[in-house]
Design a binder for these strands. Structure first.
Length: 285
DNA sequence: ACCCAGGCTATCC
DNA sequence: GGATAGCATGGG
């Protein structure tokens, strides 16, 4: 990837198999905004402002000089052309790959994914974004930069110190105690990223599901987006609909859903799912 | 006003 | 083991 330095910005070449906006608009990140073509996202204590013009991706990162972090975060260091070739096994998938061309799975922080997907249950994406934003502005740490201010996601320690009543006031609903339990488990070190990384996917899933309020679907999203287990295929209401209508599953259960995904898309079932999810949602709009 | 949303827990059989 | 009510809240 050749880099060209500009005035405090950086531009890199990206392949056709990368689309910045589609990637963020595929329901895996809840902290981004887009304004005049510029996408802004906070990750940990960093901020990225980026704009894509065809095969050119323009960066303004805070702090600067951190290119390798962002190329990894955006999965630009992976060979998606190779992955996608293996997915094109049937007509609905071929259509989704075309519609969603450019989507990548982001390498997002484990804790962020845990919080976001606990909030995601029985909820819609615009409201999930609002709730996450409220958590950040209320309990996060401000990052000041050139007159603008961004907020980090509160740490497990910070969130563990917040009462359910207080969280309820932000609008999180009955998920208040789920957030507190997750925060406590992370803060106490009962859930550790290093341990999860060493576990098999099945073991890690069980560990995540020991958090009160994390069931199979939320655990799967954490595994896919936060631990990069590409073989994991979360099925939410949209995917169930797709499996029913386009893959002829009469009733989608955890069992037959996973079997179908694993059978057709193997180690990349999670990627396949992301394209189907994006396409199904776009169709509705 | 109504149905729905990247579901989970508790409780039933 | 599998099926179902109840859940807080607001987007469309």
């Amino acid at each position: 990837m050749d880099q060209v330095k500009e005035t405090s910005t950086l531009a890199i070449h990206v392949p056709d198999s990368f689309d910045l906006i589609k990637t963020f608009d595929s329901g895996q990140n809840f902290r981004y905004t887009v304004e005049k073509g510029w996408l802004t996202v906070v990750v940990g204590e960093r901020v990225l402002k980026a704009k894509q013009e065809k095969n050119r991706l323009i960066f303004k990162a805070i702090p600067p000089e951190d290119l390798s972090f962002w190329t990894h975060y955006l999965s630009l260091d992976e060979d998606y052309d190779a992955y996608l070739k293996e997915l094109c096994t049937d007509t609905p998938m071929a259509r989704a790959l075309e519609k969603g061309k450019g989507i990548r799975i982001l390498k997002q922080p484990l804790w962020e994914m845990t919080v976001c997907f606990i909030l995601s249950q029985n909820n819609n994406i615009p409201r999930i974004k609002k709730l996450v934003d409220a958590l950040c502005t209320t309990y996060g740490v401000p990052i000041h930069h050139e007159g603008a201010v961004f907020y980090t996601l509160p740490t497990p320690e910070r969130l563990a110190a917040v009462s359910c009543e207080e969280l309820r006031l932000l609008g999180v609903g009955y998920r208040d105690r789920y957030l507190v339990d997750a925060a406590e488990r992370f803060a106490k070190g009962e859930i550790r990223e290093a341990s999860l990384k060493e576990m098999s996917t099945a073991e890690a899933r069980k560990m995540l599901m020991s958090i009160h309020g994390v069931g199979g679907k939320v655990a799967d999203c954490i595994l896919l987006f936060g631990l990069h287990r590409y073989e994991v295929c979360p099925h939410d209401v949209w995917i169930k609909r797709v499996f029913k209508e386009q893959y002829r599953l009469e009733t989608v259960t955890e069992k037959n859903g996973y079997a179908l995904a694993r059978e057709r898309w193997g180690d990349y079932a999670g990627l396949a799912q992301q394209f189907l999810f994006y396409t199904a949602r776009q169709q509705q709009k």
